[in-house]
Design a protein around this nucleic acid. Structure first.
Lengths: 191, 191
DNA sequence: GTCTATAGAGAGATAGAC
DNA sequence: GTCTATCTCTCTATAGAC
């Protein structure tokens, strides 16, 4: 049910997705959805909460290890790329949320806070981080670059490749992208 | 009229945008829109055609100059960043189109062709390009990185910055991003 | 060109049986 | 839990006056 919603909301957007289609994919009728979620918006919220929760858990795992700081950051970037590569619906959902005017994304706002807190706790607040000689770059800019190029690649690129082969993106391309992201982060963080 | 459509389609998406709102912004009534565009989809197509046409013209200007190849490529990247920075609605529209499942973006398909042809003609087909010692990287990947990180930054970042200041993105941040994109392109193209 | 008025379709939400 | 049936609303599209 959340699976069906995740896929359809991602591919069509909230407004264009019909509850009928979600129900059909699950194998029940539209009215039966109400038994689980009182309305469309709450179903969407549940989809968003689940996928972002999963991502959050994965990133926390990478960031909270015992390894030194640069290795932990790189592990988080790798985890991110791998996670999105395996779950392209997240890429599409983030693209759509990013496209919406800021005042039109109340659902996402709650979650972004959790991610900034995560980075704050495991990176920015750490004494090792303060000792790093950083390039004079806004960390939000770094995050935006990594997130933006990854989601765009995962969502848009398969269709642009010759041969008509779509999802999922090839392993080689994903690995190349991961390398590229690591390079960007290393340079921006100045180590 | 195209201005109003561009902004609203960008911020809300095609489905969620009401013709009523577009008409209101123009200062006429909904039914009067029909005099110019027979239906909603054609208005959207016209919006897309205009903004992508403008971008195409700007990029062609940058790519068709007499300068040597690396300089022309860099000019195109700079033109791209500057163009999107001044027209954030394009960023949002591209984000939405990228998010849509491939088979659900007939409108964009026509235009992407024009851009790949542009690159083909002014870059890939040039003998100078063939002589370059390139990193073994897919040019589509390069384009995806530049486009994706820029549109995401322009659309999403203003809201993430402290102070509640939204659009447009500050000049300093845009300039920093442009530098970053140039660096990525230079490295990926191997010069 | 722009309007008012209305038709018509589609979709979410609700009621209540089984 | 899942269904059928229906209500209600919103929005696009159309007709036709000015």
């Amino acid at each position: 049910m959340l699976d069906a919603g995740e896929e359809l909301f991602a591919e069509r957007g909230f407004e264009a997705t019909r509850l009928e289609d979600i129900a059909l994919r699950v194998g029940i009728r539209r009215a039966s959805l109400v038994y689980y979620y009182p309305d469309k918006r709450r179903l969407y919220d549940a989809v968003l909460a689940r996928v972002l929760g999963d991502l959050h858990a994965r990133l926390e795992e990478a960031l909270a290890s015992e390894a030194p700081l640069p290795a932990r950051i790189e592990a988080a970037v790798s985890a991110w790329v791998e996670f999105v590569g395996r779950r392209p619906a997240l890429a599409r959902i983030l693209l759509r949320e990013a496209a919406a005017a800021p005042q039109r994304r109340p659902a996402l706002a709650v979650h972004t806070q959790a991610f900034t807190a995560l980075v704050q706790r495991h990176v920015l607040d750490r004494p090792e981080f303060r000792r790093e000689r950083l390039a004079p770059i806004d960390p939000v800019h770094v995050a935006s670059t990594v997130v933006g190029s990854t989601v765009f690649l995962v969502a848009a690129m398969p269709a642009l490749l010759p041969g008509g082969r779509h999802e999922p993106l090839g392993k080689a391309q994903l690995a190349a992208h991961e390398e590229e992201m690591l390079r960007v982060v290393r340079r921006l963080l100045g180590y």
